[in-house]
C-alpha cells in the first residue's frame, strides 16, 4: 500500500506533461516564425545567380559575395551605409540630449499636467509621416538642411524622441530615489548625483532604449527618401536602386539592412534582459 502511494506521488500529472510539451512546441513555432525569413534572406543573399534562378534547387550549392561587392562599390551602397550610421548616431545623440532631462523630470517630480504632457508626446506620433514630410522638406530647403544627414537625423529625432522620453522615464523611475538622495547627503549636487549614481545604474535600460532609437532610425525609408537626394541613407538608397535590380540583389540588400541590428542587439542583449529586471533593484 505504501509503495503504491510512493509510486503514484512520484508520477508527474498528465496535465503538467502536456503543458510542458505545448510550451516547447509554441516556443519552436515562434522561433521558426521569426527566424525563417532571416535564414532565407541570408541564403539567398549569398546564392550565385544561377543557383538562385534554378527552381528545383531550394538550397543553393554555389555561394558568392559578388552581390555585396556590386551593391557596396558599384551601386554606392558603402556611402549610403556610412550615411545611415551617421544619421543613427546623430539621432541617438540628439534624442538623448533633449530626452534624458525630460525623462528625469517625468520620473522624479510631481507636477501639474504631467499626464497630459505624456499624452501629448504620444500625440505627436499620431501625425502621419507623409503629411509631415513635404512641409519639412520645404522648411529644410529654406534653411539649407535639405539633402544633409543632419536634416534626416533631426527628422528621425522627432520620431523617436517621445518614445525615448517615455521609456527612459520608466527606466529612471526604476532606480530608487534613495540612491540619488544618499549621494546628495554625502556631498554631491543633484546633477552630480544623477551623473555618478543614477546614470550608471540606469545605463543598461537606457542602452535598450537607444536600441529602440537605432532600429527606428535605421529602418526609416520614407522621410529619408524625400528629404535627401544625394546623401541617401541605406534604406532610401536600397529603396531607389536595389528595387530595380535582380531579386538576389534585393536579398543581399535585405541582409545588409538586418546585419547591423542583429549585431547591435547581440551585444546589448544582456542589458535588454536586465532592462526590466533585477539589476536595477
Amino acid at each position: 500500500m505504501e509503495n503504491l502511494i510512493a509510486l503514484k506521488t512520484n508520477r508527474i500529472p498528465w496535465a503538467l506533461k502536456i503543458r510542458g510539451v505545448l510550451t516547447i512546441l509554441v516556443a519552436i513555432f515562434i522561433g521558426v516564425w521569426f527566424l525563417t525569413p532571416l535564414v532565407l534572406i541570408t541564403i539567398s543573399a549569398f546564392a550565385s545567380p544561377r543557383d538562385y534562378y534554378q527552381i528545383e534547387k531550394v538550397i543553393p550549392t554555389h555561394f558568392t559575395v559578388e552581390h555585396f561587392h556590386a551593391l557596396f562599390f558599384e551601386l554606392e551602397g558603402w556611402q549610403a551605409m556610412l550615411n545611415s550610421l551617421k544619421v543613427v548616431g546623430l539621432t541617438i545623440l540628439f534624442s538623448f540630449t533633449v530626452g534624458l532631462p525630460a525623462s528625469y523630470a517625468l520620473s522624479r517630480y510631481k507636477f501639474r499636467g504631467k499626464s497630459f504632457l505624456k499624452l501629448s508626446m504620444l500625440a505627436s506620433r499620431m501625425f502621419p509621416v507623409m503629411i509631415l514630410a513635404i512641409p519639412l522638406l520645404i522648411i529644410y530647403m529654406k534653411i539649407g538642411l535639405s539633402d544633409t544627414i543632419y536634416g534626416v537625423a533631426l527628422a528621425h529625432t522627432i520620431m523617436v524622441l517621445p518614445l525615448i522620453i517615455l521609456v527612459s522615464a520608466s527606466i529612471l523611475a526604476s532606480v530608487s530615489v534613495d540612491y540619488e538622495e544618499a549621494a546628495m547627503i554625502f556631498g554631491l549636487s543633484r546633477i552630480h548625483a544623477f551623473l555618478k549614481i543614477t546614470l550608471p545604474l540606469a545605463l543598461p535600460g537606457l542602452v535598450a532604449s537607444a536600441i529602440l532609437a537605432f532600429i527606428i532610425s535605421w529602418n526609416e525609408v520614407f522621410i529619408a527618401t524625400i528629404l535627401n537626394l544625394t546623401n541617401r541613407t541605406l534604406p532610401a538608397h536600397i529603396f531607389r536602386s536595389a528595387m530595380d535590380s535582380p531579386d538576389y540583389f534585393k536579398f543581399t540588400a535585405g541582409f545588409i539592412m538586418s546585419i547591423p541590428a542583429v549585431i547591435f542587439i547581440f551585444f546589448v542583449r544582456k542589458h535588454l534582459v536586465t532592462m526590466w529586471g533585477i539589476s536595477l533593484k
Binding site: D178, Y179, E181, A182, I185, F186, S189
Partner: peptide, 17 residues
C-alpha cells in the same frame, strides 16, 4: 544637503549597487 555636513542611514540601506 551637501552644505550641511551630515550623514544619513536609509531604511532600505541605499548602498550603491
Amino acid at each position: 544637503p551637501k552644505g550641511r555636513d551630515i550623514s544619513m542611514v536609509f531604511q532600505n540601506y541605499a548602498v550603491w549597487p
